[in-house]
Amino acid sequence: MSGDAHQDNSEGAAETHHGGHGEGHDHGHGHSPHLAHHFDSLDQQFEAGKLGMWLFLATEVLLFGGLFVFYTVYKANHPDLFEWGSQFLDKRWGATNTMVLLFSSLTMAMAVREAQLGRKNRILFYLAVTFICGLGFMGIKYLEYSKKFHEGLFPGNSFSYATVDAAEQERARIERESLDSLIPPKAPEANPKEIEPIAKTQAKGPALPPTGLAVNMGKDEMKAKLKEESKYPSNPDELYIAPYHVPTVPRPENAHVFFSIYFCLTGLHGIHVLIGMAVMVWLMWLVMKDKIGKEFFTPVDLGGLYWHLVDLIWIYLFPLLYLVE
């Protein structure tokens, strides 16, 4: 995504600029080394930087705003997509990530506070904690994404949930049967007749009309089945479908659009978190080089604003995607 790379660059440019040391200012009579030649005072420079950052944040809000509007339009036109799709998202991971980011916002605010007081070690500490929070967030995102990819929940043309779904059913059935053979007295009758044809037809490809467990079974029937399944010891194999992954509503047409929106929103947000983490590293470097102090803490301040925005966007994303009822 070339655009984001540019965003990163120019943002860097905007910020390094404040830290710029007025190279080429030839008539510097007693100016602070932090003051660029074309500003009259550090105050003016700080104000300018802050206004610039707020404007930049406004563009960010509008960038995401566009996606939120797409979300709203599709939610209004195809609510079934969201009901179905959100069941693949684990609220627990989402909530954890929300906590992680909220906490990181706190540490970021602390870092800004320490920067104003000029306490070097403490700034470093809080920046590092913020960075680690970002890392933790991305780690959880990695787990979530790999689960989706594994299940074939890709955006767009590569969406292959139907195939994977069928394969999983088949595998679960075989496993169950093998378990049955181990503990015959307790095993209830599996229902291979219902599942086998799915696997066979689905194997042909996703072009076929949407089918799945839910389609071939009534809700009650399925609930009963799930209850039965839960009697068995949980399968250590990660391919096993956890209960929250089995949708309780039939798969709507064009189900992949939910994941398009999910990946666009969380992906763009993820990229922003990565950029934020890079900013943390750069800020730590500035602090270590003693370029941040009581009288010049603009970069930390602006970096903080950016990080809070990234957090704020997640606060909206979490309920919109994970908590759809």
């Binding site: 599709y74 955006p155 398009s260 929106i261 666009c264």
Partner: peptide, 9 residues
Amino acid sequence: LERTLGIGI
């Protein structure tokens, strides 16, 4: 993304 992945927007 629509052109490359067919995201269906």
